[in-house]
Deep mutational scan, measured.
Amino acid sequence: TRVETATETAWISLVTALHLVLGLSAVLGLLLLRWQFPAHYRRLRHALW
């Protein structure tokens, strides 16, 4: 049971790290898009909202 718990903890930390990385890359990508294509971003936002 001790090994299982350790594996579970490792998986949880791995998944958390993955989610953090994905979230950060998504935010960075959005910022980059907004910085590179302001007109396109505004049009996209206008279409979405």
Score class of each variant (00 low, 15 high):
L22P: 03
S13E: 05
R42V: 11
L30G: 12
V3S: 04
T5I: 05
H40Y: 11
L44T: 06
L32C: 00
S25D: 02
L31I: 11
R2E: 11
T5L: 02
R34F: 04
S25E: 04
G29H: 04
A26V: 11
S13G: 13
L30E: 03
V21M: 09
R2H: 13
S25T: 13
R43P: 10
T5E: 03
T5Y: 01
A47K: 10
W49P: 00
A26W: 07
V3P: 03
R45Q: 07
A26H: 03
G23A: 14
L31G: 04
L18V: 07
L28M: 11
Q36D: 00
L20S: 03
L22N: 04
G29N: 04
E8K: 07
W11V: 08
V3I: 13
T9C: 05
A10F: 04
R43S: 10
A39Y: 11
L14E: 02
L20F: 11
T16V: 14
T7C: 02
A17P: 00
G23I: 07
A10W: 07
G29K: 06
L48H: 05
H46E: 10
R43A: 13
L24I: 09
V21G: 07
A10P: 06
W11M: 09
W35K: 15
H40R: 13
S25L: 05
L31N: 02
R34N: 05
L18R: 03
G23P: 02
S13D: 07
T5K: 01
L24E: 00
Q36C: 01
L18S: 01
W11T: 00
H46G: 12
L18W: 11
A39D: 09
T16K: 02
F37E: 05
W49A: 13
H40E: 10
L20G: 06
E4T: 13
R34C: 11
V21I: 08
T7W: 13
A17E: 06
R2V: 11
R43W: 08
V21P: 02
T5H: 01
F37Q: 00
I12E: 04
A39W: 10
F37R: 02
G29E: 03
A6N: 06
R45G: 10
E8G: 03
G23F: 14
R34G: 06
L33Y: 00
T9H: 08
H40F: 11
R2D: 10
L44V: 15
W35C: 14
W35L: 15
V21N: 00
Y41D: 07
R34Y: 09
T7E: 02
T9P: 14
F37L: 09
L48M: 15
R34M: 00
V21R: 06
S25G: 05
H46N: 14
L14I: 05
H46D: 08
V21Y: 04
A17K: 02
L33K: 08
I12Q: 08
L22G: 08
L18E: 02
A6R: 11
I12D: 01
W11A: 00
H46Q: 05
R34A: 03
V15Q: 02
L30Y: 07
L31Q: 08
L32V: 15
R34P: 01
T5C: 05
L18K: 04
L22M: 12
R45F: 00
P38H: 14
A39H: 11
E8V: 00
L44C: 12
T1W: 09
T1E: 11
T1D: 07
R34W: 10
I12G: 03
L44H: 00
A26K: 07
A6E: 06
H40A: 12
